[in-house]
Computed example of a mutant assay.
Amino acid sequence: MTDQPATSATSPAVPHAGKFYVIESSFHGGGKVPGIEIANRDRLWAPGWAVMLPPDGDPNQYPETPHLVQVPEKGGMPRDLEELAGIWIVSERAKQVFESVDPEGFAFAACDFTLADGSSGPQYYLCGVVRTLDALDEETSKLRVKTGDDYVNGKFYSLAGGASLVFREEVVGSAKIFMTPYSGDEVFCTRMLRDALKSAGLTGVGLTDAAAC
């Protein structure tokens, strides 16, 4: 297993600022977490897996409807984007923004949502990013590239300690959201999706310029 930097000697990543972003659920702060749980998470696991997988577009992926429950002692009502057990949970309006910008980039699974008083809560969805592109330009990016049999696909892009990422736009093409084969669960988006999310005023969305992340 090796750990080596991928840096450019001639072409800094700074000119690429503002083109691509790391997108994730933002921290609540103060040690808080969303006041929800997936009540039937253990029954949604895929055969052979010890974890629940995000939606992949198969309408029969889960044996039953995901069931969110409100847990006020844990935190407040969910924002437009939350993350539980490594899976995005999004509101109706977040889903609408995602689908309006890049309908082929996402998969959703509608959830039942029971509030603490037993009534039905607003509509939320499990959300998965279903596009993977080998789009990172390793030669002009600045990050640590870890290689070895311990990593999925034999390689891992580590953003720990800071990184400056450059993506090959000819590979990204018309995509507005994507993951890479070597970035684990990191998700990247273009400025167009970032601007749409900002314009909609969605809560809980964390966006970091990939050129300085």
Rank of each mutant, 00 (worst) to 15 (best):
Y125G: 06
D195F: 08
Y21R: 05
G154C: 02
E169Q: 13
I36E: 01
H67R: 14
T65R: 14
G75C: 08
L133C: 06
P103F: 05
A6W: 00
F27V: 03
E37L: 05
G30L: 03
G75E: 09
A160S: 09
D209W: 12
F167T: 03
H28C: 00
V172G: 10
R168G: 00
G121R: 09
I36N: 02
E83H: 02
F178S: 07
E169N: 08
A17Y: 03
L143Q: 04
P34M: 01
A6P: 00
P55T: 07
T10Y: 08
F98E: 12
V33E: 10
G35P: 11
A110D: 10
V129H: 11
H28I: 01
L84I: 10
N60M: 14
A212H: 14
L115W: 09
R194C: 13
L115Q: 14
E82T: 03
D117F: 06
S164W: 03
L133V: 04
R79E: 01
E186I: 02
E186Q: 11
E24F: 11
V166I: 10
L165A: 05
C213Y: 15
L136S: 04
A39P: 00
A135P: 02
A110W: 01
T140Y: 00
K198L: 14
G29E: 09
E169I: 02
D185V: 05
G162Y: 05
I87C: 13
K155M: 11
P12F: 01
Y157S: 00
V152I: 12
G121P: 07
D102R: 01
W88E: 02
T2S: 06
P12N: 07
E186L: 12
M192W: 06
C127E: 07
D80N: 11
K74F: 06
Y182E: 10
V90T: 13
Q70M: 09
F113Q: 06
A135T: 03
D137S: 12
C189N: 07
S164V: 01
I87R: 11
D137K: 10
I89Y: 02
L84F: 03
D80L: 03
G162V: 02
S120N: 00
T180M: 04
S141D: 10
V145T: 02
Y151N: 01
V129C: 15
Q70S: 13
I87G: 09
T190K: 06
A160L: 04
P63M: 11
N153S: 13
T65P: 00
C189S: 12
V90G: 06
L207R: 08
N40Y: 04
E99C: 10
T114M: 13
A107G: 02
A160Q: 07
D117H: 06
D209L: 11
K95V: 06
S8I: 00
G105N: 08
Q61P: 11
T208R: 15
F167I: 07
F113I: 07
F98H: 14
S25V: 01
E186C: 03
L126F: 13
L207Y: 08
